[in-house]
């Protein structure tokens, strides 16, 4: 039987120990009071500046197609975006393309808007859930009242005060797409030509969006909770992104450390064998 060395033990470490180390690291990082200043990437800065350039009373479409699975990444983005829109006194409407996304975004938006004195139907509205994004975007580009018909509370679109003077997506100034899935390409392909888009993907989806940033098809992007932290820093608020950033960065460090340790153990084991 082969003698078990430190290196072979390290390579065969029980996965439950690894899980425990990560859990302790995350809990510790969430409780830590360390706040490091972020480096603001150009995509986050232009995201912020795109909203800043809007005038009070302008209307924005928030496409919210995330559910609890990606809550840790999309909720900080959603909250920060809504706070920014309300700070600028912009009108906004929300639409979801999955049923759970409708429930989560509506409940969250109701809470946030109540805090800021926004009134549902007057300052903002939720268009509920629509199953096909392509048909929805094409339909709304022509006539929102015909494509959506009523808001989530069953109030007809024409009767919503927030929609006064708004017939189609052509009257909107901006779309904010908050999503862990591939809804961005539908917005890019089928929106009215002049409608600007900014994007809030999860970290895993962000890599694909750099092509659209490069081509200016999207004007800005905040990536996951990390992006939300950078955006919150620009807004000067402490939100979920700020609370999560330590857990993210210290987990990155931990993963890198353990990858290096694993490789070092492999190298040492090979060396001892030879």
């Amino acid at each position: 039987m082969e003698q078990r060395t430190l290196w072979s033990r390290m390579m065969a470490i029980d996965r439950r120990i690894l899980y425990l180390i990560l859990a302790v690291n995350i809990v510790g990082a969430l409780m830590a009071r360390v706040v490091l200043e972020p480096n603001i990437p150009p995509a986050v800065r232009s995201f912020y500046e795109t909203i800043e350039a809007l005038q009070p009373g302008d209307i924005v479409m928030v496409s919210s197609t995330w559910s609890a699975g990606t809550l840790a990444e999309n909720q900080p983005q959603f909250e920060a975006v809504l706070r920014h829109l309300m700070r600028k006194r912009l009108r906004f409407t929300i639409i979801s393309f999955t049923p759970p996304a409708r429930d989560i975004s509506h409940r969250l938006a109701r809470r946030l808007t109540r805090e800021q004195g926004y009134v549902e139907g007057k300052d903002w509205a939720h268009f509920g859930y629509t199953p096909d994004i392509v048909l929805a975007v094409k339909g709304m580009s022509e006539d929102i009242a015909q494509a959506v018909r009523q808001d989530v509370r069953r109030v007809p679109i024409q009767q919503l005060e927030v929609m006064r003077g708004i017939k189609s997506l052509k009257d909107y100034k901006l779309v904010v797409d908050i999503t862990p899935s591939d809804t961005l390409t539908a917005w890019i392909s089928f929106r009215p030509r002049d409608l600007k888009i900014i994007y809030c993907p999860t970290s895993v989806m962000a890599a694909e969006a750099y092509t659209f940033l490069d081509s200016k098809q999207i004007l800005g992007m905040i990536t996951g909770a990390k992006g939300a932290y950078e955006y919150e820093h620009l807004l000067g608020i402490v939100g979920l992104g700020t609370r999560f950033i330590n857990a993210i960065q210290f987990s990155h460090v931990l993963i890198i450390t353990f990858i290096l340790l694993g490789n070092f153990a492999m190298f040492m084991q090979r060396r001892s064998r030879s």
């Binding site: 390579m11 899980y19 699975g69 809550l71 840790a72 993963i255 990858i259 694993g262 490789n263």
Partner: peptide, 21 residues
Amino acid sequence: DATMFSLIAFYIFSAAYRAFR
């Protein structure tokens, strides 16, 4: 739902340690 998705982080950590050689 959030917990199910969060578990991926633990699998990634374990897999990265074992497989990233």
